[in-house]
Nucleic acid binder design. Structure first.
Length: 678
DNA sequence: CGAGAGGTGATTTTT
DNA sequence: TCACCTCTCG
């Protein structure tokens, strides 16, 4: 073990008895360091696996880490080791310390979509919404979330507001927290905030966890927010036996509360903090790294670092000006095709990165036209799909009858003739008696408060949920029952009625099947004592189901991704599109003077590339109905000129772009045909 | 109550 | 350009 590590990496690995910050540049092998360190702690330092905690931000990263650690350890050695996301850890913590939390068993987890609906509902009820309600709701969401991330409780929020107009949001925050507790539900932020509060309020619990966790490793440390920082700090205690790995140049989530300053903060909180820099990059050619270094020197730095590599100079970075966004998309698609054929590459060698999701649209059409297979990262996640959320809410309601949020979503889906007016009356009835909505719906006395028809429907709905609850709790094999329920409540018919095309109908029905399979998979894989629908749902609610998505990842396709979603990935050949002012850097970031974060996005994009990088921009772009000239991104001008090669700049003869494209395509067709013959 | 018309707004999104 | 929301009418 600990083979193939360089001296710096080894130093980071062997430093155990003091707090350690590893400044790991892009591509510097940080995952190797973390995974090998875990193995080292267990095998060489004799730490029990269950005394080690490694936290990441994404399920994907956690999964990869688990797999890589698994390969380093003998079977059985990893037993009890925790490698999980912050949120997963928080959830397990809350379940372990339930008595010290304001929660009851089987509490629900609301995702941001649920939270948004709730906030909307609350603001609506208080007539706070005005003409631009969407903006207000978004503002409320982000303020509440940032308060939570700063560990500011509703009662303290009033003293923290900067703008008197934000006062109404303090009120929304209070109502929101109250609702969550009444629903026996938590949101994503609570999964971090509540554990931190429990530790703060109960020294004996804090001592217990500190005693249990003898070593903590944190990945992507620059992305931690204050609450996460606080949680880790409490878990490691004064002893500070931890490794934090991060790169302030890759901090691209400040807009949602991440604080790269947390890296510097460590030096103050732990005077004996050791810092190790990993500057050797194992990914990219030196020209690519030079470009990345050059761009990022325009930002102020917490820590100085300079990436280098011994992969050779490599090719120049291509820059391609295009006349407009259509030509740009066309050019990129064509260039991928040409490069692939010329150099005998595979589709998965290529990635196209962009700032905003909508930029992918133009490209998709062109890729399809050339029959280039591609996969879109991001987009609507599986769990955001209507049919999945609906069914999940049925299941949530079955697990937790207080989950009013789930109740409201499914009570009239499919349509049962229960409208907004009846629900409002039900809400009033429930409030007066301090009941959950489902409980209220089952009360006979309700009939005097809502229209007769609606009362009958509500009571029938409550009876039905009670029926399925009973069945599901009794049965060891829940999936057939869930399937039966989904059919019986008329959900399948709803999909058949509502789908506009046979394709859409099939997709939705397939999605539901995938959901069943995932629940089943989670049940099968769980520890024997945890093989319940409830345990499976708990995992599902944190989107912790990536088995077959992984398989999809391995297929041979061109990757289209936002710059954000590309962090942590690498590709042989990378295209970045839309290198224009107001695209990258994004318009809003110029206005809000957060261009530095955009520059880090540029940096992240550049450092995804192993062998080649190609940057394109459009000289003109549609803005509504008209075309507007663009100006070239400041980041392009920050690149080292000698490493760039401009394709088609000042190229005199103006050939009709449509003809050019057509010729390209004809050539490609011919090449393809030849290839097939050969 | 719900279908259909019209209006409006649109970064990034690990959980 | 599109998707989602809101309002109105049957």
């Amino acid at each position: 073990m600990s083979s193939n590590l360089n001296p710096r990496q080894l130093e980071a690995l062997k430093l155990v008895d003091a707090p350690l910050l590893v400044l790991a540049g892009a591509g510097s092998g940080k995952t190797s360091v973390i995974t090998q360190k875990i193995a080292y702690l267990i095998q060489e330092r004799g730490l029990p696996a269950r005394s080690i905690l490694a936290v990441t931000f994404t399920n994907k990263a956690a999964k990869e880490m688990r797999e890589r650690v698994g390969k380093l350890l003998d079977s059985g050695q990893a037993r009890g080791l925790t490698v999980s996301t912050f949120h997963q850890f928080g959830l397990n913590f809350l379940r372990a310390e339930l008595a010290k939390t304001p929660l009851k068993p089987n509490f629900s987890i609301m995702d941001s979509d649920d939270a948004k609906r709730l906030i909307k509902e609350l603001m609506h009820r208080d007539n706070m919404t005005s003409a631009d309600s969407k903006t207000l709701i978004n503002k409320a969401m982000s303020l509440i979330s940032s308060w939570k991330n700063e560990l500011i409780e509703p009662a303290q929020a009033m003293s923290k507001i900067e703008d008197p107009e934000d006062m109404i949001f303090v009120e929304v925050y209070k109502l929101y927290q109250r609702s969550l507790r009444a629903y026996n539900a938590v949101d994503f932020d609570d999964l971090i905030v509540l554990p931190s509060q429990v530790l703060a309020e109960h020294p004996e619990i804090e001592a217990k966890w500190q005693n249990r966790l003898q070593y903590v490793l944190v990945d992507e440390y620059q992305d931690t927010n204050h609450a996460q920082y606080d949680l880790i700090k409490r878990l490691v205690g004064k002893r500070g036996h931890f490794t934090a790995v991060g790169d302030d140049d890759q901090s691209i989530y400040a807009w949602r509360g991440a604080k790269p300053e947390n890296m510097a903060q460590l030096g103050e909180d732990y005077p004996n903090l050791k810092v190790v820099k990993l500057e050797q990059n194992y990914r990219s050619t030196s020209r690519i790294l030079e470009a990345a270094n050059k761009v990022i020197t325009n930002n102020p730095h917490l820590f100085e670092k300079k990436l280098w590599s011994d992969k050779g100079q490599g090719k120049q970075i291509r820059v391609k000006p295009c006349s407009n966004e259509d030509r740009e998309a066309e050019w990129v698609a064509n260039d991928i095709m040409v490069t692939k054929l010329k150099e005998g590459l595979e589709w998965k060698d290529f990635a196209v990165l962009y700032r905003s999701n909508f930029q992918a649209r133009f490209l998709e059409a062109n890729l399809r036209h050339l029959q280039i297979p591609y996969k879109l990262s991001g987009g609507t996640s599986f769990f955001a799909r209507t049919e999945i959320k609906d069914i999940m809410c049925y299941l949530r309601l079955i697990m937790n009858s207080d989950d009013d949020s789930a109740f409201l979503r499914v009570v009239n889906t499919p349509k049962r003739g229960i409208g907004a007016v009846s629900l409002e009356k039900l809400g009033l009835f429930a409030q007066e008696r301090a009941l959950g909505l489902l409980e209220a719906a089952s009360r006979p006395a309700l009939a005097e408060h809502v229209p007769k028809r609606a009362a009958a429907e509500l009571s029938e709905f409550a009876r039905m949920i009670a029926h399925y609850t009973e069945e599901l709790y009794q049965n060891d094999d829940p999936i057939p029952l869930v399937r039966q329920m989904v059919g019986e409540i008329g959900y399948i018919d709803l999909i058949k009625d509502e789908s506009k095309t046979p394709q859409q109908e099939k997709n939705r029905l397939d999605n539901i099947e995938v959901l069943y399979q995932n629940i089943q998979g989670l049940i099968n894989r769980a520890e024997p004592e945890d093989q319940t629908l409830e345990a499976a749902l708990r995992k599902l609610l944190l989107l912790d189901m990536l088995e077959q998505q992984r398989d999809e990842d391995d297929t041979n396709q061109v990757s289209l991704s936002t710059l954000h979603a590309a962090k942590g990935l690498e590709f042989n050949h990378v295209y970045m599109m839309g290198l224009e002012e107001e695209m990258l850097p994004h318009r809003n970031s110029i206005l809000s003077e957060t261009v530095e974060e955009e520059r880090r996005l540029m940096y992240v994009g550049i450092t995804r590339a192993r062998e080649s990088l190609c940057l394109s921009y459009a000289k003109e772009r549609r803005a509504g109905a008209e075309r507007k000239p663009t100006s070239i991104s400041r980041f392009l001008e920050e690149l080292p000129g000698e490493d760039l090669i401009w394709a088609g700049k000042n190229n005199a003869p103006v050939e009709d772009p449509v003809l050019t494209a057509q010729r390209h395509i004809d050539n490609l067709r011919a090449m393809l045909a030849n290839q097939k013959k050969a």
